[in-house]
Design a protein around this nucleic acid. Structure first.
Lengths: 201, 201
DNA sequence: CCTACCGATCGGTAGG
DNA sequence: CCTACCGATCGGTAGG
């Protein structure tokens, strides 16, 4: 009896991801994860030291994927504007649960203990935020983008996609190509029509 | 002894707002609120039926202020583009704790009980989201804004400000006029330079 | 016998 | 990797 199940770790990560997305960090009990998997609570603690470590494993795993995608996009021999487009398309075309992990990472980090939060924050900055900012800064230097504060350029870029990182809002399933195109257009070109622009200021 | 304190209700609301912003709904215990105010926990329950009602009172109070501001902006005899500008300026120029309530309202609503969440969601839609969408739709009809899905126009507008709704990120104190101007510019005109636009597609 | 509260503790549940 | 539990703390309420 008590046969170890190596695949259980992966199943825990997968199920816990969905559940954390639905309920948030404090809104989800370890017991709920155990019940959803039909395993005991101690089975969870066999694979993960505590709730924090399980949560962090989810975020770290996703962050590593994201870093690879960004590095690939940064290496493309195209204009910065195209890199931003590719990045936004990559993120928005992901399945809802994947997008929701970004939401999770940025929202529930507050609930973690101080040292864990700080170390994750640094990795998050290095593997994700910093690289986006680098692309935007390069675009400004090349005259492709307006010369604004790099931090503002970065946070408005991420912010514009934020509503689509939520789990289960109306129309937050898989996004249509047209919707993705429109979101990208707002960031790159703004919502004002070009004809309207000439009539003012 | 046991003198009633009518002002206590307002003090609870004020203190609980800051604490909910810092810790989230489940991250904050009623006891913490009581301790911060140097009153007993039952004193809290005298003024509010339960934690949910207290939380809801905070959100509702803010939502009513927001509705007034939006109605005032909608009534201005100016172009829709100027209304959007005024709305964004109004929101972004608020003190950090006020902005953070929007964050609270959209993030922690999940933690509420089903009936409460549904009824609040309707009010939120009616007093806030729906009115923003109306301004944007009117702008599209007048040819000021690009003809995109109204929901996309609305969520990208709110999304672009989202990073500035967080409590205590670096540089999320009072925003400078220049920063506010840049954020508004990204939404209205996009990040791409006009000169760069002509060189592609 | 009301109000506006307090000290103490309730039944349940959190992480471990 | 299960059953059986723990110290503590949660939201909420008793009597006075």
């Amino acid at each position: 009896m008590s046969t170890p199940e190596p695949a259980l770790r992966a199943r825990i990560l997968s199920t816990a991801t969905s559940l954390f997305i639905q309920h948030g960090y404090h809104g989800l009990a370890m017991r709920q994860i155990a019940e959803a998997l039909h395993v005991s609570k101690p089975a969870l603690y066999y694979h993960f030291k505590d709730k924090e470590e399980l949560f962090l494993a989810i975020l770290t795993m996703y962050l590593d994927e994201m870093e690879k995608a960004i590095d690939r996009i940064m290496a493309e021999p195209v204009a910065c504007r195209e890199k931003v487009r590719d990045f936004m398309e990559y993120v928005l075309a992901q399945p809802p649960d994947q997008r929701a992990i970004i939401h999770l990472a940025s929202q529930e980090v507050r609930q973690l203990s101080d040292p864990v939060r700080k170390s994750f924050g640094q990795i998050y900055q290095k593997k994700f935020i910093g690289k986006i900012e680098d692309i935007l800064k390069a675009g400004m230097q090349r005259g492709e983008f307006k010369p604004i504060e790099p931090a503002v350029a970065t946070w408005t870029l991420l912010g514009i996609m934020y509503p689509y990182f939520y789990p289960a809002r109306a129309g937050n399933g898989n996004l249509s190509e047209e919707t993705i195109r429109q979101i990208i257009t707002v960031y790159l070109d703004g919502i004002i029509t070009s004809s309207s622009k000439n009539t003012v200021e």
